[in-house]
Computed example of a mutant assay.
Amino acid sequence: MSVAIFIMSSAAGKLSTRIQPRYILAIGAASALSGSLYLSLIFNPYTTILDMFPGIFLLGVGMGIVFPHSANVIFSVAKRDQQPDASGIMNTGINLGSSLGTAVLGVVLILGSFSGLGLVFNNQAAVSSTEKITGVHQLFEKLEIENPGDIDEKQKMLKIQKVNTMKFAFNIVSFVLFIGLIISLFIPLQKKKRKHTIDPFSSHI
């Protein structure tokens, strides 16, 4: 993802001279959205990093397009005396969004993990109320000793819960990217700058 962001950020300048900012940002948001939806659809207990590579790459491409051009749009409408304020607001927004995104997705993943463990702990017959169980591995060892036929089912339930949690996290990311895509379409079109023409008569003076 970082490699894709670096490549697209380096090539972003060429796009801005040919395509309106609203369309560039819409393309970037759509690319990131397609990557997120892809990850949500293909994620399962047997997903490998190679399976996830196309989605991760599309996310990086989209972010690599959005990051530099969103800054260009912000500074293009700010007057010279407003540049410091615009820079501060933009950086604050980036840090705030990053922090909130990390916190929300972190809570979703943690709650999903605890929910999966709760499914395992519901088997009261396998876990003694008087014996202290520390760690998931020790829990599975006890389940396997006391009820060998149930351990595979519990592991399967835990994996399914993890998959559902990851899918839900990707759905949140997709929803945010979809909102960004819609907002980008409302960015006003920029007027093309007229080329300075030289009067052929005055040029000889």
Rank of each mutant, 00 (worst) to 15 (best):
D85T: 13
M157A: 15
I133M: 00
P148K: 04
I179G: 04
V108H: 05
S203F: 06
G116P: 02
N91E: 01
I187H: 06
K79P: 03
D51S: 06
S174D: 09
Q82V: 03
E131K: 00
P21L: 12
Q138T: 08
M1T: 12
I24R: 02
A103M: 10
F170K: 10
P68Q: 02
G116T: 02
A103S: 12
G35E: 03
Q124F: 08
G118N: 07
I42P: 01
D85F: 12
E146P: 08
I110Y: 03
S174L: 08
D150I: 07
V120Y: 00
Q161E: 03
I205A: 15
K167H: 06
I133Q: 00
H196C: 08
P200E: 04
N95H: 15
N44F: 02
T92H: 10
M8Q: 06
Q161W: 02
Q20C: 13
H69F: 00
I172L: 05
H137P: 00
G60T: 02
T102A: 13
V163F: 03
L185A: 09
G13A: 07
S113Q: 09
V107I: 11
S203H: 07
L50P: 04
S202Y: 05
V66N: 05
F67G: 08
K193S: 13
L143F: 00
R22T: 09
G13W: 06
A11K: 08
G112M: 02
S36Y: 12
G116K: 03
R194I: 09
I151S: 14
P84L: 12
L117M: 07
K159H: 13
L41D: 10
